[in-house]
Structures are given as C-alpha cells and as structure tokens.
Amino acid sequence: MRKLKKITLAIFLLTCAAVLGSAQSITGLKVMENVYNRPTGPEITSEMTMTLTNSRGSTRERTIRQYLKKFGEDEKKIMFFTSPADVKNTSFMDWSYGDSSKDDDMWIYLPALKKVKRISSENKSDYFMGSDFTYDDLGDRKPEQDSHKIIDEEAINGKDCYVIESIPKDKNSMYSKTVTWVVKDSWVGAKKEFYDEDGDLLKTLTIHSVDKVNGYWVILDMEMENVQKNHTTRLQFKDVQIGKSISDNFFTERQMKRGVR
C-alpha cells in the first residue's frame, strides 16, 4: 500500500513537473515564432478572390492569381490581377527577406504604360488595393518586430488557442497592439484583433476556413472587418497548389509583362 502511495505521488509530481515545464517553456514570442516558422510549403500557387463590402452593403470583387516561392529565408511572390477588366493584366511582385533589417523589393507592371516600375516598400501600413488589409497585414510579420506575451488561453470553434498580445517595437506603427488567437496544435491563427494608436479596436480578422493541402495547413477563407468604418474585406482562396514546381526565373520582369499562364 505504501509502495502504491509512493508511485501515485511520483506520478503526481512528474505530471506537475511536466505541466509546469510545459507552461514555462512556451512564451508569447515562442508561440509567434512557431506561427512564423510553420511550414507552408516551398512553392504555392492559388487564386484569390477579394471581396470588399462597404458600410452600405455594396460589394466590389477582384480576382488575383498568385505565385509564391521560398528561397531559404527569402521569399518571392507575383500577383496577377485577372479581374475586374480595368485592372486586368496588372501585376505586382514582392521579394521579401529573412533578414529583418532588409526592406522588401516591390515592382508593379501597369499594362497601360507597358512598363515595370520599382515602387517604394516603405509604407507597409498602406492599404492593399482599397482593402482592409495593409501590405504588412498580408505579409509575414517577423516575430522580433513585436513584444509578445500570452494573456489568456481560450477555445475558438472548439479549438484550444493561445491568446497573444503583441506590441510593436516601432513606435510609429499604425497599431498600438494586436491580439492573436493561435491554435495550439497547428500554430495557425484563428482570429486577430488590431488596435489603433489610441488603443481602440480598429479591425478584426476572422479565419473562416483552414485545411491541409499536401500536408501543410493553409488558410482558405478569411475576413477582415474594420469595425470603425463598418467595412469588410474577405479573401477566399481556391485552386491552392503546394509543391507544384515554379521556376526560379518565374519571378522576373519578363513574367510580370507576360502575365498569368
């Protein structure tokens, strides 16, 4: 009987140690690093539909074919606008770098001018194509750009999440803080809140659909709501292909002009 008690006590202590050890090993920064480093596949192609809905309920829709390839820590992306007609054949290319001290390189091809132009990547807080997403929202924000802490644990749609508060280190950031719900077992975001410079809620990002494609978790449907302007942008992805080979030479001026094939 005493032996059984000892074993029970040992199991209890070990369990406590494991729980405590686990809780202590995970930090807000670690969670966000896990999100940032979550494998997404070396090459991704997809068709994105962007639906803008304003406060009167009227909608505008853009479709974009996008190609992304990772080159180690760096990443190259081309987006081809396929509709509406007045922006069709416009393309946008972004080279982003693992080195956080290095700015992205961006170019745009405007078919009316038949010219590829380098554009400034400085203002990542500008909104992308009139949507509720800034360029920064759409990119992979590096974890070291913010100070993170776990403020809660909560279930979203039945999935256990860490709730992470992230405060930008750059005092000129357009957000005072963001709060992200990260699903524990997949390191995929489930929801995110963006607070303006006054600390008021500005936008809420809701993930509607996540699925595995070729073994990688992929967000297929998400919606950003600007609660101050009552304006939403929904991004829906289809024909997502991961692992389909994209040539290294795809991310060039040639392809921007040639368009989606």
């Binding site: 700015d103 390189d105 132009k117 380098r118 554009i119 400034s120 990547s121 400085e122 203002n123």
Partner: peptide, 11 residues
C-alpha cells in the same frame, strides 16, 4: 536605373 533607399525610389 532605379533603386530604393530608405523608402525613396531614386531613378
């Protein structure tokens, strides 16, 4: 030529 320095595209 064109290049970007500190957010300014110089050409």
């Amino acid at each position: 030529f064109s290049t970007e320095i500190a957010g300014v595209v110089l050409k």
